[in-house]
């Protein structure tokens, strides 16, 4: 084999090892997180033994680990992976490093749905516990559906998708603000609390179902790796010259991204920045080859969300800071760093 080819294989192997190290770190952090909190702090070895059933735990310990911490840790891992994957997919198919899963109006659609349920009491399902979740999920998909339909009416560019998304965000935001203006204090409080984003909302059963859905959906993103490489590197003309249909690919990827995002934020509320930051952090490790970037982003998304949530639970324990806020605190400075770095490149 040619020496250049050998070097390429070596580089790929090294990057895969780095991804596996990230997986190991996430696993260790998950064990640490299972044993940490405002009460019943356990060291990692004891926690691991309890998880594996090698050590007897009392009912309280068991309940705290399996009923309180396990669902939110699983949600952090799966939700973080889904949001980061959606972010990587959207950045690639729209060819824009500043895009995140919430850019195309998914967040504003979800907020609109939640506001309809909380303020107007309107819901598409009759089960009260699922009113907000169902509304947020459906409205966020409706918003993305409208944007994609506008794209179908006329073959719009990647930039136009983003601009239409921003316009719809403003419209949905205005409707939510109008409802907030007429809302009671209790409704306002509930709406604000929803928008913080928290991993403690989904129940264990819900989290397991969400995990099954997301684990089924995420691998399908991998099949577009080559198409995303072409689209993200050189834009539409370049992609066509390698056999990629930009419009069809973009539409399918946006639909998948919308599903990945909606399923998570409908249950957790708004969780930002992980979808923006995790793909960029992953690019520093594996570059922009989507065959490695998608799995790396997913793992980084899990790690980042789990880290933010664990920090939020332990930093000011027994007060728990919602993961959405913690991620913004971590992600905000990183976002500014990106902007400054991009300014240097473009100037």
């Amino acid at each position: 084999m040619d020496s250049i080819s050998e070097k390429h294989i070596e580089n790929s192997k090294f990057q895969i090892i780095l991804i596996l190290i990230l997986v190991s770190l996430t696993f260790l952090l998950a064990i640490f997180a299972m044993g940490s909190g405002s009460s019943s702090n356990l060291d990692m070895l004891t926690t691991l033994k309890i998880i594996l059933g090698l050590e007897n735990s009392n009912d309280l310990q068991s309940a705290i680990i399996w009923e309180l911490r396990f669902p939110r840790i699983l949600m952090a891992i799966v939700g973080g992976a889904a949001l980061a994957t959606a972010g990587a997919l959207m950045q690639g198919c729209l060819g824009n490093p500043l895009v995140s899963p919430l850019t195309l109006g998914v967040a504003s659609g979800a907020a609109l749905g939640a506001a309809f349920a909380i303020v107007l009491g309107f819901s598409i399902v009759s089960i009260p516990e699922l009113a907000i979740v169902a509304n947020a999920f459906l409205f966020s998909l409706i918003v993305v559906g409208i944007i994609i339909q506008l794209g179908n009416m006329r073959s719009i560019s990647a930039e136009s998708y983003i601009l239409v998304g921003i316009a719809i965000t403003f419209i949905a935001g205005a409707i939510v603000s109008t409802m907030q203006y007429f809302a009671t204090d209790a409704q306002l409080s509930q709406l604000a609390h929803w928008s913080f984003g928290s991993l403690s909302r989904p129940t264990l059963i819900q989290t397991l179902w969400i995990s099954v859905f997301l684990i089924c959906l995420m691998p399908s993103a991998m099949k577009w790796s080559w198409d995303l490489n072409a689209l993200s590197l050189g834009g539409d003309d370049f992609a066509i010259s390698t056999g990629v249909d930009p419009s069809t690919t973009r539409r399918r990827i946006l639909i998948l991204s919308a599903f990945l995002t909606s399923i998570v934020i409908a249950f957790t509320g708004l969780i930002g920045f992980v979808g923006l930051a995790a793909p960029h952090m992953s690019r520093l490790i594996v570059g922009n080859d989507y065959r490695k970037l998608i799995p790396c982003s997913a793992v980084f998304g899990s790690l980042l969300t789990l880290f933010a949530d664990t920090l939020g639970r332990t930093l000011f324990a027994p007060i728990i800071i919602p993961v959405g806020i913690m991620l913004s605190i971590i992600g905000g400075p990183f976002f500014m760093y990106l902007l400054l770095k991009n300014r240097g490149v473009n100037s």
Partner: peptide, 24 residues
Amino acid sequence: YVPQSVRTSFSMDVFDVVLLGRRP
């Protein structure tokens, strides 16, 4: 096809760019 210019949003190693030629 070789376009007049390629506007890059995200960069890749040169090897991986040329490898895109094998994508079909």
